[in-house]
């Protein structure tokens, strides 16, 4: 038994060694103290470095510079002249964000819309995820397919489709008027309502999938045990299913909330002039005002507004739930 286990442990190393192209590369890396394990970790590390950390540093740098009519439209952070290195950090962009109530209210509205959208997505997504997780095997795959199906068509196309559904002479108003429920069309386009519909619709799968992944693991004997100990089905849900699905709720909510805060396309297409979301403000600063430093400062501020509470929540969850 132990002999077999040892054999299988050694196998991967051997098989890597046998690959003709991997052998010289592996040998060179091994001399540098990098095994196959380091190689595997290196790929995502490099990816994050190139496509996340470096752009982040660039944006952070721009946010500390001064706007200028130039190309690119900001002044460099440091200058080297006559043997003197002069570094000028301009925090004015951040001070400007703090002083102008526009940004404050845009942040607030973004967080509000994203927060309520997340809540709606949770209320709609939880029962769906639960039902899929409890469905019999074959049916489960079909239902999961249906959840993922919208991704097969373009996101923009689907948002435009909502315009067709929600507009004054759109599908809903037509249907309601033809059955005589209303006499005049309801204005739905260019309202917050349309923005909510768009965001909840778009991000619902991101709520359902992590919830499903969590709920499908739920041990059904726990529900039986609760029932055996005297709990009705609602009490069982509140005391067993819900607390055990908190990691799924948390993951799904983050996946909906974070992109929803920075959402630009949906409020731009479905929302009205009153819908002031931070993504739209950022777009305006960047393209209309050509004020890259302020746009960058908005982006950095948004990042901190999002990342800090998420990190705190995650920490709280780690210290609280060692069970999962």
């Amino acid at each position: 038994m132990s002999g077999q286990a040892k054999l299988s442990e050694k196998l991967p190393e051997k098989s890597i060694g046998r690959l003709p192209f991997a052998a010289p590369l592996g040998g060179a890396l091994a001399r540098l103290g990098l095994g196959p394990r380091a190689l595997v970790i290196a790929i995502p590390t490099v990816w994050l470095l190139v496509f996340f950390l470096i752009p982040f540093v660039v944006v952070a740098k721009i946010s500390l510079s001064e706007v200028a009519i130039a190309r690119p439209p900001y002044l460099p952070l440091w200058e080297w002249q006559d043997g003197i290195l002069s570094l000028s950090l301009n925090f004015g962009n951040y001070l400007f964000l703090a002083s102008d109530p526009l940004y404050y209210s845009a942040f607030l509205e973004s967080l509000t819309i994203a927060g309520f959208s997340t809540l709606f997505a949770l209320l709609i997504g939880y029962p769906m995820a639960y039902m899929i997780a409890r469905a019999p095997g074959g049916m489960r795959n079909i239902l999961l397919m249906l959840v993922i199906l919208p991704f097969w068509s373009s996101f923009l196309l689907r948002v435009y489709a909502w315009i067709g559904i929600l507009k004054t002479n759109g599908v809903i108003n037509h249907a309601l008027m033809s059955i005589g429920l209303i006499d005049e069309p309801i204005v739905m386009m260019q309202t917050d309502f349309a923005v909510y519909v768009g965001i909840v619709y778009t991000y619902l799968p991101f709520m359902i999938l992590p919830l499903y992944a969590n709920l499908v693991k739920l041990d059904e004997t726990l529900l039986e045990a609760a029932s055996d100990l005297g709990a009705g089905s609602f009490t069982t849900f509140l005391t067993v299913t819900l607390p055990l699905s908190l990691p799924g709720i948390f993951a799904g909510s983050l996946l909906v909330f974070i992109p929803a805060v920075g959402e630009f396309v949906i409020p731009a297409l479905l929302g009205g002039p009153d819908t002031l979301m931070i993504g739209k403000v950022l777009w305006n600063e960047f393209f209309s005002n050509r004020d890259w430093p302020v746009a960058s400062a908005v982006a950095i501020a948004m990042l901190f507004v999002l990342v800090i509470p998420v990190m705190l929540l995650q920490k709280a969850q780690q210290s609280d739930g060692g069970h999962s």
């Binding site: 726990l222 045990a225 029932s227 055996d228 005297g230 005391t239 055990l244 069970h323």
Partner: peptide
């Protein structure tokens, strides 16, 4: 099951992982 004068001890024990020993026992 919850209306019967029986209680069950499950093969997998089916302890609630999110509750302490005390709370598990107090549940019923």
């Amino acid at each position: 099951p919850h209306a019967r004068p029986t209680n069950m001890m499950f093969q997998s024990y089916a302890l609630f992982p999110h509750m302490s020993v005390e709370k598990n026992i107090a549940y019923g």
